[in-house]
Amino acid sequence: ILLLFLFGSLVFKMSLGKDIYALLAMIAVLSLCSTSLGALLSLVAKTDSQLTGYSLFIVLFSAALGGTMVPLRLMPEMMQKIAKVVPQSWALEGFQKIIVSNGNMSSITTNITVLLGFSLAFLVCALILIRTKK
């Protein structure tokens, strides 16, 4: 994620916002969330092929639902509300607050908290699966 933002900044002169620490915090929390989901999926899948299939389905479905393929503001109001059940919408909103609106840490507190909640939920589910597989 960091490399993508650096590439955008260096090659396309994209602004990274005024608070680099807020950006780094969002990157770290999104990485934790992604890793937690990956741990859970690795316990659910029985084969590498299943893991690939599950991962692709979840990533594509949640990306579409979360506003990374189609801006949320273009979706019907009901879909905008449903989008809040996937981490991507919270991450996208947090990055937009930092980069587009020049937000700071206090402007992304809710986004970070929700992403940490998703991470915790994924990790708890993974731990439960680990215990039941013994």
Rank of each mutant, 00 (worst) to 15 (best):
G8P: 00
S9Y: 14
F12I: 15
K13I: 07
S15K: 15
S15E: 13
L16V: 13
G17E: 07
K18H: 04
Y21P: 00
Y21K: 10
A22S: 04
A22V: 03
L23R: 05
L23A: 04
A25G: 04
I27V: 15
A28N: 06
A28I: 12
L30E: 12
L30W: 12
L30G: 03
L30A: 07
S31P: 04
S31E: 14
S31C: 14
L32V: 13
L32S: 11
C33K: 03
T35L: 15
T35V: 14
G38I: 05
G38A: 11
L40E: 00
S42A: 02
S42G: 01
V44S: 01
V44T: 07
T47S: 13
T47E: 09
D48R: 08
S49M: 14
S49R: 12
Q50F: 02
S55Q: 05
S55P: 02
F57Q: 03
F57S: 04
I58C: 04
I58A: 05
F61W: 08
S62Y: 08
A63N: 15
A63R: 15
A64R: 08
L65V: 13
G67E: 08
M69S: 13
V70T: 04
P71A: 14
R73L: 09
M75E: 05
E77T: 00
E77V: 01
M78I: 01
Q80E: 12
K81V: 00
A83L: 04
S89E: 10
S89K: 07
W90T: 10
